[in-house]
Amino acid sequence: MAAIVLTCSGAGLLSPKPAWAYDPLEFVPDQVAAARLYGSAVMRRYGRPAYGIKLFVDLGTFSADDLSRESFALDLEYKSALSGAEIASAFTGQMADEGIATGAQIRAWHKQLAQFLPSVQASQHLTAVFHPREGTRFFLNGNPVGLIAGNDFCRAFFGIWLDSTTTMPDLRARLLKGAG
């Protein structure tokens, strides 16, 4: 079972930087030294923008075919407010649609995500950073909110957007535009 680590600042409360003070182009290189912006897109639901998405990778070694091989990051800038529970359900629903993980894994990950994913407001950023020996760490506007260990979670979570079987092939193509 994947491990979960919760981190918060202050007296047990998360106090994120204001959305206007967060720039993933400045934050991500501190987390993944060789990472550069690879591609970006806008995820739409029912014709309306749900979030902007940016992929940051090491331009020389990244492979979408082996996501758990090296460190990289994905930044989601939300266009409207959502609860942490809604975000956890959306992520795990997509994982289920992809068929990359088992039902038991997805249920366990949903429970973990629901425990630490924060609610977001419009213009706030949820950034997921993967490191092979650590797992996937989540940040709200640059502040740590949680970690899920394991390569299986990496492949299932980032596979939502990057796996060849994604239900969003056009979005995948825009994120991987640096691949050609």
Rank of each mutant, 00 (worst) to 15 (best):
A64M: 02
A64W: 03
A64R: 07
A64F: 09
A64G: 02
A64L: 06
A64E: 12
D65G: 05
D65T: 02
D65Y: 00
D65K: 02
D65Q: 00
D66Y: 00
L67I: 09
L67N: 09
L67K: 12
L67C: 09
L67M: 13
L67D: 11
L67G: 07
S68L: 05
S68P: 03
S68H: 06
S68V: 10
R69L: 15
R69E: 15
R69S: 15
R69H: 15
R69I: 11
E70Y: 01
E70H: 07
E70T: 11
E70L: 03
E70S: 08
S71F: 02
S71W: 03
S71I: 13
S71K: 12
F72A: 11
F72M: 10
F72E: 13
A73V: 14
A73D: 13
A73L: 14
A73M: 13
A73R: 08
L74H: 00
L74W: 04
L74V: 15
D75M: 11
D75A: 15
D75F: 07
D75W: 09
L76G: 07
L76R: 06
E77C: 06
E77G: 10
E77M: 06
Y78F: 15
K79N: 06
K79H: 14
S80G: 14
S80D: 07
A81H: 04
A81F: 01
A81I: 02
L82G: 06
L82M: 14
L82Y: 14
L82N: 04
S83F: 03
S83Q: 03
S83Y: 07
S83D: 08
S83H: 01
S83I: 04
S83V: 01
G84C: 12
G84Q: 09
A85F: 04
A85K: 08
A85M: 12
E86P: 00
E86F: 00
E86S: 11
I87D: 04
I87L: 13
I87P: 01
I87E: 07
I87K: 00
A88G: 08
A88D: 11
S89T: 08
S89H: 10
A90G: 12
A90W: 07
A90I: 06
F91I: 14
F91M: 09
F91E: 07
F91C: 10
F91V: 15
T92P: 03
T92W: 05
G93M: 09
G93F: 06
G93I: 11
G93A: 04
Q94R: 13
Q94M: 09
Q94H: 01
Q94Y: 11
M95D: 02
M95K: 02
M95F: 01
M95T: 03
M95W: 01
M95E: 06
A96I: 00
A96M: 02
A96T: 01
A96C: 00
D97Q: 08
D97G: 03
D97F: 00
E98C: 04
E98N: 13
E98A: 13
G99M: 08
G99H: 11
G99C: 12
G99R: 06
G99S: 04
I100F: 04
I100N: 05
I100Y: 07
A101T: 10
A101D: 10
A101R: 01
A101Q: 09
A101E: 06
A101F: 03
T102D: 13
T102M: 05
T102C: 04
T102F: 10
T102Y: 12
T102I: 05
G103F: 05
A104K: 10
A104C: 01
A104Y: 05
